[in-house]
Design a protein around this nucleic acid. Structure first.
Lengths: 235, 235
DNA sequence: CAAATAGTGTCTTTAAGACAGTATAGT
DNA sequence: ACTATACTGTCTTAAAGACACTATTTG
């Protein structure tokens, strides 16, 4: 199905480039980490960049393109994907006027594939330090990454978003530790549990526990129809 | 300055269309209203739409394009412009794969031009009812408008955003009325003033007041370096 | 001085934070 | 029995909401 070209659309050569870029985050080795890919082609060949790519005619939507990119570049099907914002101007890409729609994805470390996606031998996880990573990123990706980290940290304060960084089954102490890592501060156990209880988005998993040399903790999972829940107050 | 075409960019004919669309809101006649323009050309000729347009090579950025559109279509230079999000898929525009970057703008009714922008005899303000307007909108603009209204209403709960709907000088009862209109509920005067005072973003304008057959109210303005302030709690 | 709205103070009620106490496992 | 962590209850303290009171103008 080709386009009828009814209205006064811009000449093809005057159309800006349109891409999607995804900041995908996980929690590994007690630190928040982002997936980066090393660029093979110019511009910025050899530099690390957020996984991304051009919108293609066979993409069904912007979000669909983001999912395709994650699958192609890292073999990841993410359970959580949220649009972050768009960045576009005449100068950000030397090939011409360019805009990118940025997404944030979260995934539990136990859902990462042992071997990455087909086109990405050069994909690897980098720990977040502050709001950036060690290597210098291509394009304006450092700015996008910083915005993504900021978005996630802000949402941790008043939503249940961190559950997406945990396995399907987890204990309340597990969940509290994730919050504490992301917020970089200790939380009161009693207050934390009150918050979690009042939004009522978890259900206990029966008959299972976890052992050490102490009292075992109850296992929980998110209720089947769960979407990110907002607290009345900050966590 | 033409593009060097170094990397493997999509062929021009395969590039999606890219537009910006702006939901601009004001408070007139005690109701929130949005500016709509009547489309002259197909597709959707004759339908009302959000002011918008294609990204052009001479735009400096996405936000710059949004400001240009507002100036062209309505003669408005908005004091408040915020990116809402992007909407794009293969089907939303019959001319082909299309994406739009949506913005929300706010303006005080006393800053509206008496005569609108040059290309827009067919621009007019429509009251918001719920999260929509009376006419059927072109493309997916009804969805975008609803998202814009939702964004604004949500931010009213915990930010100072409504000051952008008021003239430069206003009284605290004025401000409270704006909050009440947007939230559609009464607020306690004492509690409201505590919230406003604690974020400390207003300064009194000396020597001026306002008269009726009662005690006049102090006039205030936002402090010079003001950006939207977030409350600790909801308003 | 009556009416009307601006602005402030106080009291009651509710929630938050700290912290202690109980529970349950392994050794 | 001791230790370590899970989990719950209570007490103190602070904030929020309701509401009354004072202030200042015009007619």
């Amino acid at each position: 199905m080709k386009q009828p070209q009814t209205g006064p659309v811009p000449a093809p050569a005057e159309r800006p480039l349109l891409t999607v870029d995804v900041t995908i985050l996980t929690l590994r080795d007690d630190s928040l980490q982002a997936l980066l890919v090393r660029r093979a082609e110019p511009p910025h060949a050899g530099r690390w960049a957020l996984p991304g790519g051009f919108i293609r005619p066979d993409d069904i939507s912007l979000e669909g393109a983001a999912r395709r990119v994650l699958l192609d570049k890292a073999g990841i099907e993410t359970p959580y994907l949220e649009q972050l914002g768009s960045y576009g101007d005449a100068k950000r890409d030397p090939r011409g006027w360019s805009a990118t729609v940025a997404y944030v994805a979260l995934i539990a470390s136990d859902r990462l594939e042992p071997r990455h996606g087909r086109n990405a031998d050069a994909a690897s996880w980098w720990p977040i330090v502050g709001t950036s990573v060690a290597p210098t990123l291509a394009f304006d990706h450092a700015r996008i990454l910083a915005a993504a980290i900021g978005r996630v940290r802000a949402k941790v304060e008043y939503t249940t978003l961190p559950v997406h960084l945990l396995p399907a089954k987890f204990t309340l102490p597990d969940l509290q530790r994730v919050y504490e890592q992301l917020l970089d501060r200790k939380l009161d156990k009693s207050a934390f549990r009150k918050r979690i209880a009042e939004v009522d988005f978890l259900e206990p998993v029966e008959g299972e526990r976890r052992a050490a040399s102490n009292r075992p903790a109850q296992l929980w999972r998110v209720k089947p129809d769960h979407r990110t829940v907002f607290f009345d107050r900050t966590i």
